[in-house]
Design a binder for these strands. Structure first.
Lengths: 252, 252
DNA sequence: AAATGGCACTTGTATGGACAAGTTCACCGA
DNA sequence: TCGGTGAACTTGTCCATACAAGTGCCATTT
């Protein structure tokens, strides 16, 4: 392996934490123990632990062995991007129904977000996402043709579009999400089983390649009684010593 | 001074960056140079640089000196908590009107959030926040009596309740925010100048002391056409090497 | 003129040692 | 029984050193 030692240490501890092999609140082995187990120096072990702390997986304090943090903090990208991954981690059954997948001319904000001329053909996907068999979110995604083409060979049971695209070599890299509120239109209302006009939590996103080429424009609409977002914030006396605020999805 | 050396180094570099003394894109002194200047070892200097990277202030890469990052990232807590601070940074004029400040028995979710028995007296504040003289947000805050008492000597022009409370020794420490959507009730509609029932972006928060004692329960309702939240996300090949996603408020 | 090679400089990784400072817990004394 | 003392263990801070690996640039070569 050519991966640095401190990364390997962090990876192993991380997997033990997320797998539950190290339960919440349990103390990790002390630094001294870890140096033995990985045959590494203490500095290297501390680098790995610092990474886990940054990710919000552990709490550390002088004199106390590091402990697994209360909120098993999710992986920031995959879990925020992937409805399925998030639901599984929360212990819910994620379901979905693909309402429509179509090739049609792009229009409106999607055209602008994808840097395409109005009328350029794109692939549109409309999916209903369910949580424990109850409607929770409507997802409207628009992909440029080169990307969206790959979705016609997409197995709906595979569930994660992003995993599918990454596996096909699409270089998803970064995303920008904008969160606001919107009233349910007729289609939303029927799919989500709410009254037309009732308030929904909306998340619009623009996914980019490393070069800044737009790869997706998506608009998700959540039933606010089923899914909310949350943030934890700490007023840090010494900036940087505490983990950054994270945004999480929450259910019920 | 008893502050650790690596913190002092980070502080000095941070202040040079935010003050603009080190312009965007400019390379920082090399690690070797910094060890001389602060008479510190290289490990200590690297600890400081790692902190700055975590905060998103600098970009680093093997072989290249660290450079000041394009987006001067905002301070996470104060800027997320304080409407006024946020508006100023965005270049907008934040205004406000205190609609009501009252002492009354607590009821409903506020009682639960503050760990108080139903009916315990609390201080309630209702404020209308404006952005460039246009109604943007309704803020409902509930404080336990010991805390809320300090608000009767609060100068409405001082504008930041949190700054006022911190100055009076209230140990605001951490906060948990839940974001969802809700329909405007009669009062909201009148204050925000929207139709009753129209969708609003709601942020509920619980502010705690370091010991976990609840100090505030707040509920803010934003006009989604005036204020939204946004998140930037990067799919990191090596977790932890990239700065954490931040949540920001945005206007218009 | 363009490609190639090498050198100087930089950061990344890793080791080992030393001391300071906080936590925990068992033990002893009042 | 209660309280305090202290030792053992832990993490926090800091140092000095070494080598690997990436970048940028200049000089040589083609």
């Amino acid at each position: 392996m050519t991966t640095p030692l401190h990364v390997r240490i962090a990876d192993e501890l991380r997997s033990q934490i997320v797998s539950g092999s190290l339960p919440v609140g349990a103390p990790l082995p002390s630094e001294a123990r870890l140096t033995e187990r990985f045959d590494a120096s203490r500095g290297t072990v501390r680098t790995a632990l610092a990474a886990l702390q940054r990710e919000g997986l552990i709490d550390r304090g002088q004199g106390r062995p590091p402990v697994v943090r209360e909120s098993a903090a999710p992986q920031s990208f995959e879990s925020f991007m992937s409805f399925t991954a998030w639901a599984q981690r929360e212990g819910h059954a994620a379901g979905q129904r693909t309402i429509e997948i179509a090739r049609r001319p792009v229009r409106g904000p999607a055209a602008e977000a994808l840097n395409l001329a109005e009328g350029t053909p794109v692939i549109e996907v409309l999916r209903l996402r369910t949580l424990d068999a109850k409607a929770a979110m409507v997802e409207r995604s628009v992909f440029p043709e080169e990307v969206g083409r790959l979705l016609f060979e997409f197995d709906p049971d595979e569930s994660s579009i992003y995993a599918h695209l990454l596996g096909r070599g699409i270089p998803l890299h970064s995303a920008r999400h904008v969160i606001d509120a919107v009233g349910a239109d007729e289609a939303d209302a029927e799919l989500l089983e709410v009254a037309p006009g009732s308030p929904l939590l909306r998340e619009r996103r623009r996914v980019l390649s490393p070069d800044g080429v737009p790869l997706e424009y998506g608009e998700d609409r959540y039933r606010p009684d089923r899914v909310t977002f949350s943030i934890n914030n700490v007023l840090s006396p010494t900036p940087g010593s505490t983990p950054e605020p994270r945004i999480l999805k929450e259910s019920s």
